[in-house]
């Protein structure tokens, strides 16, 4: 009641003043316009791809890449979808990314439980090890992994990709989650002790539920990172049926059968899944990117 009253009194006195001050400053709109122009430059490539993906080759040849399509032409997208069996690629990417995200989070939890809460001996060295493991260029691992996977008949199989990325992503997850678990409220752990819960039960019924927001961030990261991975899937997934979306699109580059509109169609359907994840996960993502910074 008091709050509304005081605001009601304050607003009329405040508003005209600020409004006048704002009007006096043309710089404001100059800066906004400059930012909008810059944003347009950044987004322009995406817009150009989008308008040309739904343009017929004839119209493209006639009026160029910048005109808006007079009618929507879906054949480029449909042709491309059928030609690369895009549904299959989407499924491969989804299964791989999802499995890696689940297993990677589980592995991170176990590691971080031992390092952050258990304070295992030599934990600083373990942390350094996981940090370095995450920084290593994949080139230094690729040939032995390629060789070993052939030995155990997992070459050209999604399973090998899942195993490798689970470990690589969990290395980052361990690093991040350990710093979160170090700050874990000891009262909760002590309470679980008093209740007679073992370590295993404490982990699943106390630690995991409490840290669910961080785990959500990790899951999102792992999913998107694995979805976008290019190098190792390129080396490992050689047959058409096993390719993920980025590999399928990457190897088609420069294919002589691709004309301008079909190429932009392929670009558009490559962007769409990423865009959808971005919109779905946006909140968790922004939170997560900063979580990494705080250490």
């Amino acid at each position: 009641m008091t709050v509304t009253a005081s605001r009601a009194v304050k607003t009329p006195a405040d508003a005209p003043e600020t409004r006048a001050a704002r009007r006096k400053n043309p710089l404001r709109f100059f800066i906004l316009a400059a930012l909008l122009a810059l944003l347009l430059i950044v987004i322009a490539p995406l817009l150009i791809i989008a308008i040309n993906a739904v343009k017929s080759p004839a119209e493209y040849a006639g009026s160029g890449p910048l005109s808006l399509p007079t009618s929507l032409y879906w054949d480029g997208i449909v042709d491309f979808w059928n030609r690369v069996d895009f549904g299959q690629k989407l499924w491969n990417s989804f299964v791989t990314s999802f499995t890696v995200a689940v297993l990677g989070v589980l592995l991170s939890i176990l590691n971080a439980y031992a390092l952050g809460i258990g304070r295992v001996k030599g934990r600083l060295w373990f942390l350094v090890f996981f940090l370095v493991a995450n920084l290593l260029p994949q080139e230094v691992l690729v040939y032995p992994l390629y060789f070993l996977s052939k030995e155990v008949h997992l070459y050209d199989s999604l399973i090998s990709i899942v195993i490798i990325f689970t470990v690589i992503q969990a290395a980052f997850g361990t690093y991040l989650l350990t710093s979160v678990y170090q700050e874990f409220p000891t009262e909760l752990l002590d309470a679980a002790d008093v209740d007679g819960a073992g370590k295993w039960r404490t982990l699943w019924s106390v630690v995991v539920p409490v840290s669910r927001p961080t785990l959500g961030v990790l899951f999102t990261f792992f999913f998107i990172w694995t979805w976008n991975e290019f190098f190792l899937p390129l080396v490992f997934l050689v047959s058409n049926d096993n390719q993920t979306v980025p590999v399928a699109l990457g190897v088609l580059q420069g294919d002589r059968l691709m004309d301008a509109t079909m190429t932009s169609a392929s670009g558009l359907i490559g962007i769409l899944p990423a865009l959808i994840f971005f919109l779905v996960f946006q909140r968790t993502l922004t939170r997560g990117i900063t979580a990494g910074a705080i250490k």
Partner: peptide, 24 residues
């Protein structure tokens, strides 16, 4: 007694990261 929780993570990292690194 939290060491056991590290076992899967360490084993997997040795297999996928340490061994290939040493081999390279």
């Amino acid at each position: 007694g939290y060491g056991v929780f590290l076992i899967p993570g360490v084993l997997a990292s040795v297999l996928v990261i340490v061994v290939p690194l040493v081999m390279t």
